[in-house]
Design a protein around this nucleic acid. Sequence first.
DNA 1: CTATGAACCTGACAGC
DNA 2: TGCTGTCAGGTTCATA
Length: 281
Amino acid sequence: MPELPEVETVRRGLAASVTGRTISAVTVAHPRAIRRHLAGATDFAARLAGRRIQRVCRRGKYLWLPVDGDDVLVAHLGMSGQLLVRFPEAADEGHLRVRFVFADAGTQLRFVDQRTFGSMAVEPAGADGLPPSIAHIAIDPLDPEFDDQAFYALLRRRRTGVKRALLDQTLVSGIGNIYADEALWRAQLHYAHPAETLTRQRAARLLGELRAVLTAALTSGGTSFDSVYVNVNGHSGYFDRSLEVYGRAGKPCRRCGTAILREAFTNRSSYRCPYCQPAGS
DNA sequence: CTATGAACCTGACAGC
DNA sequence: TGCTGTCAGGTTCATA
């Protein structure tokens, strides 16, 4: 599950259902799902068995679960990963990759991932409590520690288009293709606007719109066009109904009525209103 | 440093 | 009913 609102929805679900639980057994059904755990499946399972989950944390699109001892279980959902809380008798999902059984609960945690771009790993926590493997990931805009002024300065130092900058998880995290396009539409910015020439006012407007759209999506439980993006109970969010540009090629802009444009961008798609977000804007 | 493309996978869908 | 091509909320690496 991709972007910040969807991952945060999963984090909240996990926090409510697995915090304080002790893992009794871990089964890795597909080695690719733990490819970032270099020591392999046996070691992965052994390092979690008998450990109690203390919390469920998130930065950007990454989740991590500190367990007793000094280890953390790090997870990234990639494009199609799901973390599901299921009763043991529920049939295995077709793309079940890792199963966590608890000693003290009637449910299991299952990592299901069709495309296997997601992955999990266990590692020792860093000095700051963050998993070392995500030290390169910037803080996200909903984090209370986010420094707006520092963000403007870093943004204007980039010699690239503003959307590219937003998608760079080392500059600001949690934003993907949907919410980048939505925030740019709200801020009336063209995706190729050079980051270095953004005025402070426009950068502030953009950051404000980013926070607004991420927060609104979170309230709806995230964006979901199909059953791939679901919370821990397997239910979809409904923010797709509130999207202004993403996926709306040819449909009228909700602000001016002009047909929304879809253009190739970095091996994927970018959506914009040609009137509200013309080249150069 | 930035930019591009490809790679990693599976499945859904459109068009022929 | 196939088949082929295209596309998908991400990250990372190699090559210019």
